[in-house]
């Protein structure tokens, strides 16, 4: 499981995840993900384009982080989830509480 900070400036936090977000993958990145996204208090773009699997515990991490950001008045957007990952996220109703978009430019417009 890989965790990368693509951009972290005054306007945005852009994080990319890659690999399997099963319980072991989650344990490998959860602390860094939550700290990076939550501590900067910036609109946050989470790129899932290279995520091949995402379990319910990882959905919990996304929901928890989005709640923290909302409490501080900023949004989180999920971008480019692969088809099967997106279906699982939608089955859990994640798209109702965290916007999910197909492109980075859409995400940036939404977070502007």
């Amino acid at each position: 499981m890989q965790f990368s900070v693509i951009r972290a400036d005054d306007s945005i936090t852009h994080i990319a995840l890659a690999g399997r977000l099963d319980i072991q993958g989650l344990n490998a990145i959860q602390d860094r993900f939550v700290f990076t996204a939550s501590s900067r208090h910036k609109p946050t773009l989470v790129d899932l384009s290279q995520v091949t699997f995402l379990a319910s515990l990882a959905m919990g991490m996304l929901v928890s982080t989005a709640k923290t950001l909302q409490h501080r008045g900023v949004k989180m957007v999920i971008v480019q989830a692969p088809e099967l990952v997106q279906k699982a996220l939608e089955a859990a109703g994640i798209q109702k509480i965290i916007p999910m978009v197909a492109t980075e430019s859409e995400a940036l417009r939404m977070l502007a």
Binding site: S56, L57, G60, V63, K67, Q70, H71, A88, A92, I97
Partner: peptide, 18 residues
């Protein structure tokens, strides 16, 4: 309850739902 707003959504409990 998938219709709750973000602030009221539980973080856990999605495994059985899935």
């Amino acid at each position: 309850d998938l219709d709750l707003p973000l602030e009221d959504r539980r973080v856990g409990g999605l495994g059985v739902h899935l």
